[in-house]
Amino acid sequence: MAEIKLTIDGKPCTARPGQTILEAAKASGIYIPALCHYEGLKPSGSCRICTVKVNGRPAAACTQPVAEGLVVETATPELEDMRRALVEMLFVEGNHFCPSCEKSGNCELQALAYRFGMLVPRFPYQWSVREIESVSPRLLMEHNRCIQCRRCVEAIRTPDGRRVFAAQERSGRLRIGVDPELAAGLDEDTARKAMAICPVGAILYKEVGFAVPIGRRKYDRSPIGSDIETK
């Protein structure tokens, strides 16, 4: 199949037809920060952190397909500030108290904030009232930390295709609801997968956590995305 040529921040890149800009960038060693994106899942385009400019127009790199001759900008001061703003919005929208979180050090939201050098969000904390739900013998749902990325909605289904996690309500009330009956029926592997796929500490497998000591966790030493950049 014909190769597609495009530039990302002036760097000539090649891509395969059907790839997204995010995938093409990754293949070229360029990390476009993203949060809701998870390899192998249909992108939801919900976090907007991968917003880039394509021929001057904003678009989410995770959903935008490549095309011949595209001029993509990603590491501009304007876009980097907007990405940081989106991360900061998430920090004030939910209740993210990192010191007590099982996912701290392995959390992708936190890792992005580290990468962007966030010391304090520019926005006022909202102190949303949310709950902690015991949804099955195996799983906890910590809604305070949920960023509604929808990875779990997409990925965790019953063998007959029913969704265990589902978006409920709308606007600022949006929440990821869990089907108690279906969640109770999840096998151990799927329940562990649900925790692993959650970018933050919202879906928790009970009775685990804090197993890896500080200093040896995923993002303790090297920033998120550095694996792509060092390729």
Binding site: S44, G45, S46, C47, R48, I49, L86, M89, L90, V92, E93, F123, P124, Q126, I147, Q148, A167, E169, R170, S171, G172, R173, L174
Partner: peptide, 21 residues
């Protein structure tokens, strides 16, 4: 707009609330 945002994406769901505040 705050009420009618579907809530899917972060800037619209959270950003409009912050603008209103």
């Amino acid at each position: 707009f705050v009420e009618e945002s579907c809530g899917w994406c972060v800037p619209c769901r959270a950003g409009n609330v912050l603008l209103l505040r």
